[in-house]
């Protein structure tokens, strides 16, 4: 079961029902359990991130959420309707942005949007209006009638996302949308997703980039080995590590004496010495840093550099799994 960092993931009582409710989802391939007992909810307007390394079970999970794969156990409910391969009706509430560029290279951007719009049952003026709006939103209005095989990678990515937005779904599912994207396009994609969330659309976002999850997501589920290890807001997750910061003090002098002096400070929990300096585990480093510097110089140490690192989701992942996100 996942560690819950703070309040339950479900929407509080009296609040709007979750847009997505995933309960006890399991998917096996022979002896391999790709996803085991995964549960989470997404509230209206919330951006929920599934953070985990490659092979953690993110894509399998969203494939079941999107109704592409049947689950061996568990249920998915979207806007109160059961979701699955045999329940196509609920998919009208879903916009899927697959990791691959799911567009037709021989069709223009407008033709791609019109095609998928018709499959989403948009017709006539509504379809025309939405296609024009999405082309504006993704910045491709001036290239609307060009074949997408002539587009840059970033333009294709934007169109890939635009198709998912076309029918204004309640839930947008993005599967690692920034993989293989240049920094400029990546920034544009992240801006777009943040804007969508601001407009009230619920988003399920999978990534193995910690900084994306921290920047975009209201809540994050950390997944590894097919199970949800923990979930919560960034701060809630960070507290799982004990809430301590790390301070690195580099310089010359009597490091043993300096280390002993620093251990006397109330905020300092641990001090380790090596040839280049000292590594400290500290509670609330921004407050304690002045005392640390004063104590170190007072012990005769000549400081070259002081570096403070606060815990992030990478630290949380390391804390929970014993290995780094990119291992």
């Amino acid at each position: 079961m996942a560690e819950t960092a703070s309040a339950p993931a479900r929407a509080p009582e009296g609040a709007t029902e979750p847009v997505l409710r995933v309960e006890g989802l399991v998917r096996r391939y022979g002896d391999l359990t790709a996803v085991g007992d995964v549960s989470f909810t997404i509230a209206p307007g919330e951006t929920y991130g599934l953070l985990g390394p490659n092979g953690a079970g993110k894509t399998t999970t969203i494939s079941m959420v999107a109704g592409l794969l049947p689950a061996d156990a568990g249920t998915v409910t979207l806007a109160g309707e059961p979701m699955g391969p045999r329940h196509p009706a609920a998919r009208r509430h879903l916009g899927l942005v697959p990791q691959e560029l799911a567009i037709y290279p021989d069709l223009t951007a407008r033709e791609n949007l019109r095609y998928f719009g018709r499959l989403q049952r948009l017709r006539g003026d509504q379809l025309r209006r939405r296609v024009d709006e999405v082309l504006e939103l993704i910045g491709l209005a001036d290239r609307a009638n060009d074949a997408t095989k002539e587009f840059s990678g970033g333009m294709k990515r934007r169109l890939n996302i635009g198709i998912g937005l076309l029918h204004q779904p309640l839930l947008l599912v993005l599967d690692e949308p920034t993989v293989g994207v240049d920094p400029q396009s990546r920034h544009a994609i992240l801006e777009s997703v943040a804007a969508l969330s601001g407009e009230g659309m619920s988003v399920l976002y999978t990534t193995h980039y910690m900084e994306e999850a921290e920047r975009l997501c209201d809540r994050v589920g950390i997944i590894d080995g097919g199970t949800l290890q923990a979930e919560g807001t960034r701060d809630e997750l960070v507290r799982l590590t004990g809430g301590v910061d790390h301070v690195r003090v580099s310089g010359e002098g009597d490091l043993t004496t300096t280390a002993a002096a620093l251990r006397e400070l109330p905020a300092v929990q641990q001090v380790d010495a090596d040839r280049q300096g000292l590594s400290l585990t500290v509670r609330d480093a921004p407050t304690a840093i002045a005392a640390i510097v004063t104590t170190a110089t007072g012990a005769g140490m000549t400081l070259r550099d002081v570096e403070v690192s606060r815990p992030d989701l990478e630290s949380v992942f390391l804390h929970l799994t014993g290995r780094a996100l990119r291992d």
């Binding site: 494939s63 999107a66 109704g67 592409l68 391969p85 196509p88 009706a89 609920a90 998919r91 009208r92 879903l94 899927l96 697959p98 990791q99 691959e100 560029l101 799911a102 567009i103 037709y104 290279p105 998928f116 499959l119 989403q120 049952r121 198709i163």
Partner: peptide, 15 residues
């Protein structure tokens, strides 16, 4: 191969 199958299967219609 090109990923459009996943998108098609996510549409509100019988696969």
């Amino acid at each position: 191969k090109q990923g459009t199958m996943a998108r098609l299967r996510s549409m509100p219609m019988n696969p």
